[in-house]
Design a protein around this nucleic acid. Structure first.
Lengths: 137, 137
DNA sequence: CCAAAAATGATAATCATTATCATATACTTT
DNA sequence: AAAGTATATGATAATGATTATCATTTTTGG
């Protein structure tokens, strides 16, 4: 197997058209509206595309797995309190050459990067001081 | 609820002693050997600690969820072919001030960062050229 | 100390994901 | 082009990490 199957192509193209990361189930529903495809096939295609370095996944704080095409290099700041993810304007690794091709003997296709903390509204409700040190005990 | 419960403390301390990220199930087995604790409690403690910013999770390519204490700021390069994760020596965001405290109005507690690609042995078996462009079709 | 609230442990339930298997499709050989 | 072989697919059953449930225990606050 050295090329993309029709199903994998359909999955990749659908992902490339998504404005936001999407779940496997939602992707299945989306594609199924236009062509015959099985849920298992969507999962298999996603897995294959992941291993090809074309698709990446991110698991949210709530445990949901979301997929996106790797060329959509998007990063988020996720609030630990309300769970909202705020997209960053640019990739923080922009200036880091090693992030984009090689690190030592390792060939890099893509990276994942996310920040976790408190958004402004939540840090007012739950001041940094109390929360962080409370967990220290 | 403004402080750490005994179970949460046990979970956090166990995590802080782990040389590597660990699964919830393995953590449960580990702690249970020393004290009475339920599996559901381990999961609840992990979730609470995650929301407190003390614990983070990472989901491997194989779908396994691993947890670590956030002070163990470790990053990996993961091979898409063999699935092996190679730890980085230092945090690539070391020089990025915004990564460690504030980004705009967002208070940052921790970040996750991982690179995906091919390790040297696998890139010999599966040259970059063929794999990447084959998926372009 | 006591009532109320929160956390716990055992275990059943959930559901995203994967395994199974018959069939379809793609690839290779004749 | 046909036949043989290999791979992928779709429907659906199975899986297992994780969460819900509930009686009980522990913690909190007055």
């Amino acid at each position: 197997m050295a090329h993309c199957t029709p199903a994998q192509t359909a999955v990749l193209k659908a992902l490339q058209q998504q404005p936001e990361p999407i779940s496997a189930q939602a992707l299945y529903t989306l594609i199924k509206a236009h062509q015959r495809i099985g849920l298992a096939t969507v999962y298999r295609a996603l897995d294959a595309l992941k291993r090809m370095g074309r698709v990446q996944h991110r698991v949210t704080l709530a445990g949901e797995t979301l997929y996106n095409a790797v060329e959509q290099d998007r990063h988020y700041m996720t609030c630990l309190d309300c769970g909202q993810s705020f997209p960053l304007d640019t990739c923080p690794l922009k200036g880091l050459a090693s992030a984009h091709q090689h690190a030592g003997s390792f060939t890099i296709y893509y990276h994942t990067l996310e920040f976790f903390g408190l958004c402004e509204p939540c840090s007012v409700t739950h001041p940094h001081h109390n929360r962080y040190e409370a967990a220290q005990n």
